[in-house]
Design a binder for these strands. Structure first.
Lengths: 156, 156
DNA sequence: CGTAAAATCACCCGAAAGTATGAGTGATAA
DNA sequence: TTATCACTCATACTTTCGGGTGATTTTACG
């Protein structure tokens, strides 16, 4: 409140000056129109218009803008912004290679396909998957994938 | 709405009052220095105040509210609000029993476990899964689960 | 009532998956 | 230097999976 008042101090000064000018204009109009017929009516109309405009202007500039908050809900697909749970990955002691195997497993690849993809032997993949199952405390690849997705080490 | 504007209303009111005071001061000065007809002046002041208030009121009530769009991001937990894609299910001709098997498959259960769970023989589960693979156009259970989740017939 | 679709089960066989165990290599930390 | 660990690969063995085929029983529907 006070901060706002101080902030608009310059503006208020400006108002004061313009108001002073306006009053002088009034005085002048009064002096000029006093001689004419229906001078009072014209004078009053002029004052009415000028002050109404001033009022509008004041309201526009001194009032806080009317704001209407419109909430737009944005549904975000989790699979898009996946962040790997490195902590869990570390706690379970899952290595990089094992994670690679796990990811390919999740894509539905067979051990042979994974072996070919990673340029290693089938037995190597078997070893990796066995260790993976131990660490994830499962006994099948399908369960491994299930658990891995749930604990956030591979995307859903 | 009015509560929000109350702060600035006070400023404007204050300004209006000081303006009135100024006019009265002028009037007083005028009265003290020169003797003039003051009926017109008071009339003018009244008009000025009334129309300024009117202007303020008009501005307040006729101004369009500024709309501020606030985006609210909602992370959708797909597993919670899952709606089965019945259409696809029908198009692929997947039966109730097959769907049951598929769901248990997705949980990582072996055929034997599924058989025990559904109180049927292992061979029955094999038949179901075989037909499922045909309908889903896959050749492995992991792929079946993968596809099924993607096309929305089982929750992610 | 008859028929089609679904569900059930069986047997065989090969492929894939998983278990157990051992071992070699390279990088890194104690 | 030794020890540890990740990664690699291998052999042997068991279990599970998936394909193929065929059959019987339910269930649903016109």
């Amino acid at each position: 409140m006070f901060q706002k008042l101080f902030g608009s101090y310059k503006i208020i000064l400006l108002y004061g000056l313009s108001l002073a000018g306006l009053l002088f204009l009034m005085r002048w109009l009064e002096f000029r129109l006093l001689i004419l017929d229906h001078a009072t009516e014209l004078y009053a109309a002029a004052i009415a218009i000028i002050f109404m405009v001033l009022g509008i202007w004041l309201a526009k500039h001194l009032s806080k803008p009317k704001t209407v908050l419109v909430e737009k809900t944005v549904y975000v697909d989790q699979s898009e912004n996946f962040v790997r749970n490195e902590k869990v990955l570390d706690e379970l002691g899952i290595s990089k290679r094992e994670l690679e195997v796990l990811e390919l497993m999740a894509q539905g690849l067979s051990n042979n396909e994974i072996a070919a993809r990673l340029f290693v032997s089938l037995n190597t993949i078997k070893t990796h998957s066995s260790k993976l199952f131990e660490k994830l405390e499962v006994s099948r690849r399908t369960q491994a994938v299930e658990v891995a997705k749930r604990i956030g080490i591979i995307p859903l």
